[in-house]
């Protein structure tokens, strides 16, 4: 499903005449199968977030290849990346990234709106997903009226409303207390099992990583451990 080959990326920082190049990814290779939960773990600065951002198409890699369902996405234009994300990825962020001016319902239906789906279908789909994540009673609330756990549930609902095959999660429980964290992790496991969604979770928390079928460990721009399938 996801095949990453020889992925390299370097950040250039500082002023033009005093540029400093930092190699963040130094040739990453891995393969993720459909319906897996894969955790990419590593310390801060190991390059795991950069890896997720490149897979998501938020930035282009310096070199290497990323195949998603046999489509090479590493060199997509911004427009192509956006269209690809809309159809293939859902996102869960550490700080939820909900739109504060929109209600729970509106936040969840946003990806459907972007896809150009009509009002009636949206209503039906959002109602279904609200039931799945247990947010029916707060559909008219604004994000700031919800607890952290509820906000992350909204983010998860938004991520899966378009039935994407892959959900990319960047520290999905990083802003939650341990009890809420457990609830969210359980929800992820249920969705993986029931909806057959592939999850790629970036985390530094071993407990979060424990729900994954596989762990890919990163350190200093390299994959240093974990189970990698042979290409």
């Amino acid at each position: 499903m996801i095949k990453v080959d020889s992925l390299k990326h370097t950040f250039t920082i500082g002023k033009k005449d005093k540029e400093n190049r930092i190699e963040v990814l130094k040739g990453i290779n891995f393969n993720i199968q459909s319906k897996e939960i894969v955790a990419i773990v590593g310390k801060s600065g190991s390059g795991k977030s950069t890896l997720l951002q490149i897979i998501a198409g938020f930035m282009k890699p310096e070199s290497g290849s990323i195949l998603i369902n046999n489509t090479e996405i590493a060199h997509f234009s911004e427009k192509e990346s956006a269209a690809f994300r809309m159809n293939h990825f859902g996102f869960i962020f550490q700080n939820f990234q909900l739109l504060p001016g929109q209600t729970v319902f509106e936040n969840i239906e946003l990806p459907l709106k972007l896809k150009g789906i009509g009002h009636q279908v949206r209503q039906k789909k959002v109602q279904e997903i609200l039931k799945k994540v247990g947010l029916v009673e707060v559909e008219d609330h604004y994000p700031n009226e919800l607890s952290g756990g509820q906000q992350q549930r909204v983010a998860i609902a938004r991520a899966m409303i378009t039935n994407p095959p892959i959900i990319l999660a960047d520290e999905p429980t990083g802003s939650l207390d341990s009890q809420t964290e457990q609830e969210i992790l359980l929800l992820i496991q249920q969705l993986n099992k029931n909806e057959e969604i592939t999850f790629v979770i970036i985390t530094h928390d071993e407990e979060v990583a424990s729900i994954a079928n596989r762990k890919l460990r990163m350190s200093d721009g390299f994959l240093v451990g974990g189970t990698q399938y042979a290409f």
Binding site: E78, A82, N87, Q97, L110, P111
Partner: peptide, 16 residues
């Protein structure tokens, strides 16, 4: 800015 970021992340094209 953040809202634009979210929209782009979930698939809004630059044209939109």
């Amino acid at each position: 800015t953040r809202e634009i970021g979210v929209l782009k992340a979930i698939g809004a094209s630059p044209n939109l």
